[in-house]
Amino acid sequence: MTLRILLAVAVGALMGMFILPQGALAYTDLVIDIGLMLLLFFVGIDIGLNRSVFGRIKAIGFRILFIPLAIIIGSIAGSAVAGIVLGMPFNEAGAIGAGLGWYTLSSILVANYSSQLSAMAFIANVTRELIAFIIIPTVAKKLGFLEAIAPAGATAMDTGLPIVSRSTDPETAIIAFISGVICTSAVPVLVPLILNL
């Protein structure tokens, strides 16, 4: 699966760079939206076919919240350590990590602070999303299903969800969606907060 994901993104990127006319860019968002809706519908069918998951989710209860919390804290801590490696101040590196893969919003939120940091936030979070797509199946297989939610960050509620769902089970897909919603809600609060430290 990992290789197929890598190939799909690479072939798409090469087609975008060298083959397709620039006018096609206008339609990519629409195609992505339609494809995403179709995939989320399939995720729903999977969940519907395994109704027992709701009982298990109910049993876990509020403890599900520890997953997005761990992802948020881990992402910020990881970016802070990366900042030390790259010679960046804590607030700048931490703000990039707090983007949690939501590249459009995180780059906008830091744009007023610095245009260079805005570009870095955008590229680092695009890269996070791409790396997440590639490694989620391997993380699910080697480390565990819940760990496979972590790379997706905020995208676990949309673009990352179909990959988590294909690589894990319906129970993990529901937890991933909840985690993605919480991470997504945290980004607009955390990025400015950390940037102003």
């Binding site: 197929r4 993104v9 990127a13 096609a24 990519t28 494809g35 294909r166």
Partner: peptide
């Protein structure tokens, strides 16, 4: 269902790749 999902997923990722490649 699994095969259909995988096909849709790879198509979606391909289009996301196109979007990145064209920017």
């Amino acid at each position: 269902l699994g095969s259909i999902q995988t096909a849709c997923l790879l198509l979606l990722l391909g289009v996301m790749g196109v979007k990145i490649g064209m920017d």
